[in-house]
Design a protein around this nucleic acid. Structure first.
Length: 258
DNA sequence: ATGGTGGACAATCCA
């Protein structure tokens, strides 16, 4: 079984790269974040020929998540319990024995703002939710854009960037609290201590991708029993060479006996 | 060069 994640930064602007990537890699599930489209405007027809079904939870202009899959999703959930913000950041579905939780974590704007407090609150709500959910669904995968870099090796300039909303102690603690439920960061599992591996490069920094001035903000995590069956996890930057790339790239993981 | 880029969407908000 192969599972992937991609922050599209607008699904309607990334139809071609997503179709191309699905065709080339044939994942069982692709989780997408920042679709930036309300459900009635989701470009369903554009993916009709891919052989993938898609479910989505969107809103106008911002946020939005989707799940592409070969097999039918069951037990679809679109809301994180306790999050009354109305923001479309959560989408869960079962695929056979595997449960996939796709999230787009709040970015947080600036430390000390209401948006930053919401980010911390959101991680805590997710922790509380997954604590019980992981008991019910032992083959749980949590993936997506977490808007958090775990360690110094996950950003291009740890000294200079320390204290920013995606790289500060409070957010790292919030993320680690969720992972401490028994979720394993699969990229780091397979690439321990390897620096310079990123999934996001800021558009606003000139040639950030070429210079590899990036951040590792996107993750695939799996509950421990499932993580033991993960045989590979890779960042795929090929789509960065295609027209109008997203500021994020594809990340995928492969499991045996699923 | 007295911001830079990109996306949604219609004057700014968000990343």
């Amino acid at each position: 079984m192969k599972i992937a994640t991609f922050n599209a930064n607008s699904i309607r602007s990334r139809i071609e790269p997503i179709r191309r990537w699905l065709n080339a890699h044939q994942p069982d599930v692709l989780a997408v974040q920042e679709t930036k489209v309300q459900d009635e405007d989701f470009p369903v027809d554009a993916f009709a020929e891919t052989g993938y079904q898609v479910v989505f939870h969107g809103q106008k202009k911002y946020n939005g998540v989707a799940l592409f899959s070969r097999i039918e999703p069951k037990n679809i959930r679109k809301h994180l319990p306790g999050d009354s913000s109305g923001q479309a950041r959560f989408l869960q579905a079962d695929y056979g024995p595997v449960t996939v939780v796709n999230t787009y974590a709040p970015q947080g704007f600036e430390v000390g703002t209401d948006k930053f407090e919401y980010k911390l609150k959101w991680f805590d709500l997710l922790r509380r939710y997954l604590k019980t959910e992981i008991q019910k669904k032992p083959n749980l995968i949590w993936l997506g854009d977490f808007n958090a870099a775990r360690e110094d090796i996950d950003v291009y300039d740890p000294q200079g960037l320390w204290g920013s909303v995606c790289f500060c102690k409070e957010v790292q603690d919030a993320l680690e609290s969720v992972l401490s439920l028994g979720l394993v960061d699969l990229f780091r599992l397979h690439h321990p201590n390897q620096p310079g591996c990123y999934t996001f490069w800021d558009y606003r920094i000139p040639n950030s991708f070429k210079r590899n001035l990036g951040w590792r903000l996107d993750y695939i995590t799996a509950a421990e029993p499932l993580a033991r069956r993960c045989i590979r996890c890779e960042i795929d930057t090929e789509a960065r060479a295609w027209d109008k790339p997203s500021d994020h790239t594809f990340l995928w993981a492969e499991f045996e006996q699923c």
